[in-house]
Design a protein around this nucleic acid. Sequence first.
DNA 1: ACAGGCGAAACTTTATACAATCTTCGCCCA
DNA 2: TGGGCGAAGATTGTATAAAGTTTCGCCTGT
Lengths: 235, 235
Amino acid sequence: MAAKTRQKPDAPDASDRVSRIREGVTAAILEHRLLPGTKLGEDEIGEIYGASRTLVRTALQQLAHEGIVNIEKNRGAFVARPTPADAREVFEARRLIEPTIVDHAIDAVSPAWLDRLQGHLAEEREAELRGDARASVRLSGEFHRLVAEMSGHSIYLGFLKELIARSSLIILLYRRHDTPACGTDHHAGIVSAIRKRDKQAARAQMLSHLNEIEAELFLKDPAADELRLADVLGA
Amino acid sequence: MAAKTRQKPDAPDASDRVSRIREGVTAAILEHRLLPGTKLGEDEIGEIYGASRTLVRTALQQLAHEGIVNIEKNRGAFVARPTPADAREVFEARRLIEPTIVDHAIDAVSPAWLDRLQGHLAEEREAELRGDARASVRLSGEFHRLVAEMSGHSIYLGFLKELIARSSLIILLYRRHDTPACGTDHHAGIVSAIRKRDKQAARAQMLSHLNEIEAELFLKDPAADELRLADVLGA
DNA sequence: ACAGGCGAAACTTTATACAATCTTCGCCCA
DNA sequence: TGGGCGAAGATTGTATAAAGTTTCGCCTGT
């Protein structure tokens, strides 16, 4: 009875209001509209989403747990500013986890999933074609999340979500050149390997993809982030 | 300036009240004093820790994010009850991450760390000797966390904290025999390999240690957890 | 006797009010 | 003129109260 009133036990978070806030802020950070160090005032966000501070606070705490927001006691929440050391850790973790994820994805391959992957590649190409940098950045991250979802491994998926979000901040802070988007071609190659069910090739391509992304970064002195931030803001 | 007023940027959480609640509940779960499915009422916990429901709620949300508490909408928080599928995922993730962690730990080895490891082994042996099952379970998990701290890799540490906490629930639910404690000898072997800086041996021992723990589990039909719970409660 | 539904109690969820803390700006003094 | 002290303003941390939902018991009708 009352199957209508009780929402799905595993609601995709889109239903309740705190999730809408969380996803809105997350999207803004992933699309590089909110820069590292930006203050996230509770009243400010609450007014935007028409919610009271209680809900905003909950959302910010979740984001803090995901590592893309820092909460400083009695000072407020700020968009995180990963250090070069953080960056190295994030990419090392991704190099460890993502090859395993593609393995699982290949085990779970199906026509429906291949369609979704293909559709995503098309979206990426389109965004890149029309020069929509924000969409490109977002879609580039979503590709990796899509593969993780495909793997059906919920723990890896959770971990990777965190790593992807942090990667987005890292790329913004430490990217060397203004690379258009990090390897849509690579993504296509990975999908191709998945379609052929070639685990070895898929792992290798994922690994080299991640290596190339990190190679584009400039992770030297810890003062560099200030410079980069000024650079971006001044543009 | 004012280095005194500003508390350490990385406070060990012991200072504020919400952390005390979180760690208290976590300890109770890890020591198997709170069984899976137990209702965690906000008033109830708040009264125990002398805190208002606001703080309790924050702590419970953090625990939910760590995967050891389930929050059901309009129903409350409950100690999580991992399914056999969850269990397999957790142990697969541990098999992937922990060998890499010991690698890093060996890179960071120092007399001080070896002392801490040795001291921990002594604690474990002592707890096991006096038959203190609760302390044994807790210390067994803390050993793995200690190695992760030693590795200096904060992301792996965060991930592993989650995995350890969930493992504790899994072992409680699906353990076949009443094994006294899962491999204090194994831990000693791992420490020995770390002392010798033998990465290959350390990785191999960690892997087989995890495999043995999982081999002790009975991860068949999804109804088994009900039986196990009844079994434990009836005792 | 049993099934179905009404209603009250308990709990969670959300909002608001109060207290504590930090930041900022102006003023005073050296 | 520069630095430091202090009060006002703003923002976060905490508690409490109002609102909504679920659950359980009880009652009624068949």
